[in-house]
Design a protein around this nucleic acid. Structure first.
Lengths: 212, 212
DNA sequence: CTGAAAGCTGACCATACGGTCAGGATGCAA
DNA sequence: TTGCATCCTGACCGTATGGTCAGCTTTCAG
């Protein structure tokens, strides 16, 4: 049943194996950190022999880099929310929604990203100095415009962005702590919604966001 | 001059070496994670032969546990601010100040703590289920009282606490990112002050904190 | 002064890990 | 069907790491 037919085409094989490896790697890197992760563990989780990993990814570093870059893509995609928005209420609400969704659906990715940054971004330094900086500068400009247009109070845009990143990512990176304080149970749908609403409300009220 | 006389007493030797080892360990664990840290690296940084580390701390796990417990103490001490306060403005302001000071003075400690939690708190699980839970419940009660007394809007106390933790710790854990976005320079005194003021302002305004 | 306890360390060991490779299995184009 | 490129993998290797230990030096109580 489950394993009966295997008419796998070459392309499919490669794609599926890479996907399985990356998924397993993300989890193991998130749980153990780069140094604590082992190729054997990743291989076991992916259901492949270790040597097969090295067929697709030459080194542990290369595999790690792939994982981190994947995450960075997702992280940046959440940005679009900001651009289409008319004002801070729309834009920041949507951004918080997007980032909270990432925290909920990709907690491992978020952890790997956090770990990478905490350890000095050995892999992503280039991206941070180019792509991330440009992205940030763009959003800072948008926020500044909102302030000039009287749509929100004159809050430092950078610190506001840090606040958005911090509050949303916290639910992934410190998920274990939150879960423990929640009686050992993961947050329910309801609690996730409450978390989002709380963050939005406090921040939007806090910056004096005005309806566009 | 610097190294002339060494009338070290036993007690002093032990205290100073343990201190040096713990300091070095904190830094190495923060930079490399538990798995990436090596006893050799810690020993070198502490200026001691590796075997000497094992004289004071039998295993890497034991050393790590000591580091983490130290940090947990500091983390909890910032709590006192909350207790003595009359209302949300005093209490939360003081707490933000205290936590930002920790982020600035103990970034390595903060990172180790973050790493520990991200990896499922293998060492601190017990503390989190006892001490941390009690501490949190206590603060939740205080915030609830403030709400009942009309000193602030009815914001979910837990999510507010997470927000405080997230925003303040972010400046330590993601310090590298912030530094990169700051042109590769660490935040100046002024910028730290601005960061603190921004956080306070947004959150206190956001929760509708009323002067006691 | 003396002996025992505390502090110290170079040399060593077992293990685990990242990585390699020769050679087998499999799909696929011609 | 055939030949080749891709895919796969068990067995192996060198190294780095956590940890041990025998024996040395230093402190200090009596």
């Amino acid at each position: 049943m489950t394993e009966s037919t295997r008419p796998m085409r070459r392309q499919d094989i490669r794609r599926e194996n890479e996907k399985a490896i990356l998924l397993a790697a993300e989890k193991v890197f998130a749980e153990a950190g780069f140094g604590g992760a082992t190729m054997q563990l990743i291989a076991d989780l992916a259901g492949l022999p270790k040597a097969n990993l090295h067929y697709y990814f030459a080194t542990k570093e290369e595999l790690y880099r792939s994982v981190v870059q994947n995450i960075f893509e997702i992280w940046l995609q959440a940005a679009n929310c900001f651009d289409v928005a008319r004002g801070p209420i729309d834009g920041i609400s949507a951004y918080i929604d997007a980032k909270m969704e990432i925290s909920r659906r990709h907690p491992d990715g978020s952890k790997v990203w956090a770990s990478e940054v905490m350890h000095g971004a050995p892999v992503l330094q280039d991206y941070m100095e180019s792509t991330l900086r440009e992205w940030t500068d763009g959003r800072v400009a948008i926020i500044r415009r909102w302030i000039e247009e009287g749509k929100m109070d004159p809050v430092d845009p950078r610190h506001l962005l840090y606040m958005l990143w911090a509050t949303t990512q916290h639910y992934a990176d410190f998920g274990h702590q939150i879960e423990t304080l929640n009686g050992g149970k993961p947050l329910s749908d309801r609690q996730w919604r409450e978390a989002k609403e709380n963050i939005k409300r406090v921040i939007l009220t806090g910056i004096g966001a005005q309806p566009a």
